[in-house]
Design a protein around this nucleic acid. Structure first.
Length: 234
DNA sequence: AAGAAGCACAACCGCAGGATT
DNA sequence: GAATCCTGCGGTTGTGCTTCT
């Protein structure tokens, strides 16, 4: 945990926050909002850099934060979302109200990873360590996006697979709802998408899905003029 | 009792991307 | 278009507490 360059130049404080600093920051933001973070420490009377203030606010001081241990349901949801999104902690945190990306990241690295390994599951791939054949043959947790020109008048909607929890399904639907609600389409010209002629759709293998930029997975769908996707799990 | 190891948590670093000049 | 600033993200590491030997 080194000193940030701006902190060094200005001889600002680093390390843990004191209750007095917390109170100053909380009072200032409660009264004025954070506005431009780079000006917050000066205006709030703190010897910190704006970046440090922002982090402290987001991870500790902002209202509606849920403190305390994670429930089993939350842990399960994190595992399922991680299998879809990979290390996109901020997107995972967005599906868990009151939890921060930092908190989830810490939980993953210190606890969940270990639990998965104890179960014989690779936390990176979410597959059993010794079950290569299943890994190659099975398309578990692959996302299918079918394109249905003939259904272009219908609203696109994701389809829940039998082995997918309702919580994860809802979280996933929320994540993709902006694209779906505006006639979202499957990307048609990227090497990260494999066309699956049998399904008349696009098959994303898990690794491809995880490596695909989030903007491709969401925003770029809007650019296709005619296709209408359906999402389902196999 | 004391040191080592493990653990959870807080916070910093470096980078990317968008906005502004 | 280039430079600069600001924000947000993911990775990493320091700190302090607890448990183990």
């Amino acid at each position: 945990m080194g000193r940030h360059s701006c902190c060094f130049k200005q001889k600002l404080r680093k390390g843990l926050w004191s209750p007095e600093e917390d109170e100053k920051l909380l009072n200032y933001i409660t009264k004025h909002g954070h506005g431009c973070w780079s000006t917050v420490p000066k205006l709030a009377g703190l010897q910190r850099c704006g970046k440090s203030c922002r982090l402290r606010w987001i991870n500790y001081l902002r209202p509606n934060l849920k403190r305390g241990p994670f429930s089993q349901q939350e842990e399960d949801l994190i595992v399922e979302l991680h299998s879809i999104l990979g290390n996109r902690w901020s997107q995972i945190a967005a599906q868990l109200p009151g939890r921060t990306d930092n908190e989830i990241k810490n939980l993953w690295n210190s606890c969940i990873k270990k639990k998965l390994k104890q179960k014989g599951i690779d936390p990176n791939t979410h597959k059993p360590y010794l079950d290569e054949e299943t890994n190659n043959n099975g398309k578990n947790n692959s996302l299918i996006i079918t394109s249905n020109d003939q259904k272009s008048h219908e609203k696109a909607s994701p389809i829940q697979s039998p082995d997918m929890s309702t919580t994860t399904f809802e979280a996933f639907s929320n994540l993709f709802s902006p694209a779906l609600n505006s006639c979202a389409v499957a990307p048609s010209s990227t090497s990260q998408v494999v066309h699956n002629s049998n399904n008349n759709g696009f098959l994303w293998q898990p690794d491809e899905f995880l490596s695909a930029p989030s903007e491709l997975m969401r925003s770029d769908w809007h650019r296709h003029p005619t296709l209408q996707p359906e999402l389902f799990w196999i």
